[in-house]
Design a protein around this nucleic acid. Structure first.
Lengths: 344, 344
DNA sequence: ATCACAGATAAAAACGTTTAACTTCATTGT
DNA sequence: ACAATGAAGTTAAACGTTTTTATCTGTGAT
């Protein structure tokens, strides 16, 4: 028993394969009654479209390439864990479509660029989703020049308009800072992603502006850029807390960094709420389990990932990118007062 | 400028496409000199195999389906985060091959079963990688009956032999228990995955055996089965620590559970090392950042994932499954003494 | 000189689909 | 009455491979 093809249906119905093909794709060239007959027969024989034929004929791949930048297999730091949920979110968004997510794991920016170049020129996918965007991102230019559909998780600054989904980092930092300053903090540390990343730039800018508006000085010693691992959080708490005038609040760019910051507190004998506090941005709903639970801006990763999936589908259908740009505002979840209580 | 095909090379060299095809696949039917000419021309025109043609002709897909069971997009619990690294590890292992990882995110066991059935019957991939295996796993039977190549992350118990990679859970629990008992613990809690999973069964069995050998009673109140989220860890610490005779040690099946356990300590005012201790199994190298750092069995997730990739390649080449079975023993990393110090 | 044979290459068919070009037939407008 | 139009189908080619079968060429044996 072979897998049924349109030929099977043609034989079954006495129509030509061309008509069957058209009927299945709802071409206006075929009469509704005929279509009904075809659909019925298709159902009966258990027909399912063979993508390989389509792919060869049309050049479509029905693949959405997700470029995942993760540190090499040898490096064992807790990094990029939110990718799992990001991928599954995208995958679910594509569920009703014939598209599948195919994964391209790369080690660094250069490799992602090379991979994208290949996907584009060899047409290995119909659409691409990337993250870790830069202020001026050559990968975006590459895809735009080739008119290749793509969506980014993260904005760019100097590139021509494109489809993206991102958290509203500027707003988030602005409000975070206002809140902490209102609660008496004057020395606020920013544990930020690498400066190459757009959101690193955006967050830093917003941070500086907030300081300025509050009439507080900007101290570069309170800002760190790096890979958002627990190690990063820990190291910076350890070193910054040793400053003559140490920070009383740490804003961590993700939950891994926040976990590491707690580890730094432990190492230096600091007590959360007495010596300093930690705030964070949280994708994974994990801040509530820290001891003590911390205040965070929470954006369930399912939201951006569902949007990424939706957007790439629409881009592949030719929708212009201008309509496919969303900044999501995370919810502030206050779990501690964050005023210092210098008891004891 | 069209993408070059074997036809391009045929024109270029004056040979037929058949010969070119054979030359490219190192068929013995073509003379070495001819092959050289072909390879040279291929290089010159920048030829790259078009998989769509191959796929249609041979039925091969060059896809490895990774079935990822993750909770629905609506549920926002920190679960399954290690999947990101697992996937990238597999993806790297396939890097030199023409195969790509294509992702199938499913919500639960039933859906994974249905998805696998489809992949197998519609031949949507050449190989499958699944995790979350059960003692008697119908998915494994399904793939075996269809003689479909697959590798599982996690053993099964009642199924016919198949390729798998797993951590040596029995040994891990045996040694963990021996170590804790040696340090004076008599009431040891086991925060375990759901009983359906093979490793849940294996761990429980090993736990009971360890108790028995030490002459300690088995108390079901100290064993919990559930989804390995922080919430699970927290809830069980909260409830178990309220027992008349509470546990003095908690063995957590992963780092998410351990994080939640710490949260439970905080909620109940327990101090790690004084009231009880936490041990864990760690894939993500994150136990070192807990406050305090805890003792764990650490298996960098890169190792099993690289093996999964290697194994599926070999299975797809027809290698029998018997040779493709590996139990990995995680390293014990002692970060605290774990004897209770009832100071204060 | 002819034959059989092997080695090397070529021709052709096939995989499942889409689509441009064509045919058929009924309907419409004059 | 008849050309023009349009709707609904059909034919056939094409996408890039692999593979079966056929063809050709030269060698060595008879």
């Amino acid at each position: 028993m072979q897998r049924p093809t349109i030929k099977t249906i043609a034989r079954e119905t006495g129509l030509s394969i061309a008509t069957v093909s058209k009927a299945l794709k709802h071409s206006p060239q075929v009469r509704p009654e005929t279509r009904a007959i075809v659909l019925d027969a298709a159902e009966r024989v258990g027909y399912e479209l063979n993508l390989h034929g389509v792919q060869l004929r049309t050049g479509k791949t029905y693949q959405v390439a997700a470029i995942m930048t993760a540190p090499g297999p040898k490096e064992n730091e807790w990094e990029g864990v939110e990718y799992a949920q990001l991928l599954s979110g995208i995958s679910w968004a594509l569920e009703e479509s014939p598209y599948r997510v195919s994964l391209y794991a790369v080690r660094d920016f250069e490799e992602s660029q090379e991979t994208i170049r290949q996907i584009v020129s060899m047409k290995k996918a119909d659409g691409i989703i990337i993250s870790g965007t830069r202020a001026d991102d050559p990968r975006i230019r590459l895809m735009q020049e080739a008119e290749f559909p793509f969506v980014t998780y993260g904005m760019s600054i100097h590139n021509a308009p494109h489809a993206y989904v991102d958290a509203d980092n500027a707003q988030m930092i602005r409000l975070s800072m206002a809140r902490l300053i209102e609660r008496g903090h004057r020395r606020i540390a920013l544990l930020n992603p690498k400066e190459q990343f757009t959101y690193g730039v955006v967050r830093l800018e917003s941070y500086r502006k907030a300081l300025e508006e509050a009439g507080l000085p900007y101290d570069p010693a309170l800002v760190a850029h790096g890979r958002l691992t627990p190690a990063f959080g820990r190291e910076n708490v350890v070193s910054m807390s040793a400053l003559a005038d140490p920070p009383t609040a740490y804003i961590c760019a993700n939950e891994a960094t926040a976990l590491g910051a707690f580890s730094g507190f432990h190492a230096r004998g600091l007590v959360h709420g007495r010596d300093a506090v930690i705030n964070a941005t949280d994708d994974l709903n994990v801040s509530q389990y820290f001891a003590p639970p911390i205040t965070s801006y929470y954006l369930p990763i399912g939201e951006p990932s569902a949007l990424l999936g939706k957007f790439i589908l629409r881009r592949m259908e030719g929708e212009p990118p201008a309509a496919l740009q969303t900044l999501l505002m995370p919810d502030l979840i206050e779990r501690s007062d964050d005023r210092l209580r210098p008891e004891r």
